[in-house]
């Protein structure tokens, strides 16, 4: 059967989305205040097409699939920790094979979710390979800046100075000694059609939905890195998740931007760029940084954020 690709539908409003069936069921076991559920819910609501979802081992997987229950009203598979991208590439290849043979005629989209551990660290090879091979799928990293599922260990997404169980604050070492990796830029260097950084924040309520829709319409691989608070690991009141995420964006610690066919575009410029110390002060993992003897770490963090922000503005021709 011949298949004609549907023209992209008009972007839905928040109200439109509220009438759609929620494909991510309630009753899952993710923590109160966890940043992941809004990311997943918005992603699934954003798609005009049926989707198949792959999830790496991690909080999202263990919190939503405890046998014999499932939170997923879409076809879903978990294979292992480091291979969400390669598992997705197999599914997408089978889809192309069956379409070629005329055994399937539906337009289907493929989405892989992985945490920062499964994406920045152990899964980066599988991700890079799948991006290079050009599989048409969207990879979403829910980035809570550490191995939270195993009990808050440092990853290469953990920022300088953060207190984690494997970069603990001690008598001689004041938390993580290295800067985080800029994975979004690394992915953008693969020259894939669509790359973005996002966050679920009130100031740009449709940011993620808009980006997911663009990503799913891209004719090739796409990637969205979404900051996702972990109130257990970041140590803040679960009620403050969204507020703290907003602050990450307003301090330019987590800028919202996209790279569409190689063109960098800033999506949100804070009216007033707040100092990073305001963001640090909201979380227990940075508590030690407020002491005078650690002022140099805060200074280094601020300098890095300023430098990265200036570079991003240039890249985005702002």
């Amino acid at each position: 059967m011949a298949v004609t690709k549907e023209a992209p539908k008009k972007a839905p409003s928040l109200k439109d989305l509220s009438y759609k069936q929620d494909l991510f069921a309630g009753g899952h076991r993710l923590c109160a205040g966890c940043g992941i559920p809004p990311i997943v819910r918005q992603t699934l609501l954003a798609s005009d097409y049926p989707v198949v979802v792959v999830t790496a081992t991690g909080c999202l997987e263990v919190g939503t699939s405890i046998f014999p229950y499932t939170s997923w009203r879409v076809p879903w598979i978990h294979c292992a920790f480091e291979n969400a991208a390669s598992t997705a590439s197999g599914i997408e290849s089978m889809y192309r094979a069956l379409k070629k043979k005329g055994k399937i005629d539906q337009e289907i989209r493929f989405i892989a979710f992985g945490g920062d551990g499964g994406t920045y660290d152990i899964g980066i090879q599988a991700l890079s390979g799948a991006l290079e091979r050009g599989h048409r799928f969207l990879y979403i990293c829910y980035n809570n800046e550490g191995y939270m599922n195993t009990g808050i260990q440092r990853s290469s997404a953990t920022p300088l100075g953060a207190d984690t169980t494997t970069s603990p604050v001690g008598e001689v070492i004041p938390g993580k000694r290295e800067f985080r990796k800029n994975l979004t830029a690394i992915v953008a260097a693969h020259d894939i059609p669509y790359v973005a950084q996002s966050a679920t924040i009130p100031a740009r309520i449709m940011d993620l939905v808009t980006k997911v829709r663009k990503a799913l319409d891209a004719d090739g691989p796409s990637f969205i890195n979404v900051l996702s608070s972990c109130d257990r690991g970041w140590r803040h009141d679960p009620a403050d998740t969204i507020k703290i995420t907003q602050l990450a964006v307003d301090t330019c610690y987590w800028p919202l931007y996209e790279v569409e066919n190689g063109k960098w575009k800033l999506n949100y410029k804070p009216k007033e760029k707040k100092p990073v110390i305001e963001w640090l002060a909201t979380q227990g993992r940075f508590k030690h940084l407020l002491k005078p003897e650690n002022a140099d770490i805060v200074r280094r963090l601020q300098e890095k954020i300023d430098r990265d922000w200036e570079f991003l503005l240039k890249r985005c021709a702002e």
Binding site: A88, S89, G90, A97, K100, G129
Partner: peptide, 24 residues
Amino acid sequence: STELVPVESEHSAMSACVGAAAAG
């Protein structure tokens, strides 16, 4: 008529095989 997936490692080879087989 095969879709050949020239993966970047054997780990990904078997992972892609699992995904493809589960896809149907």
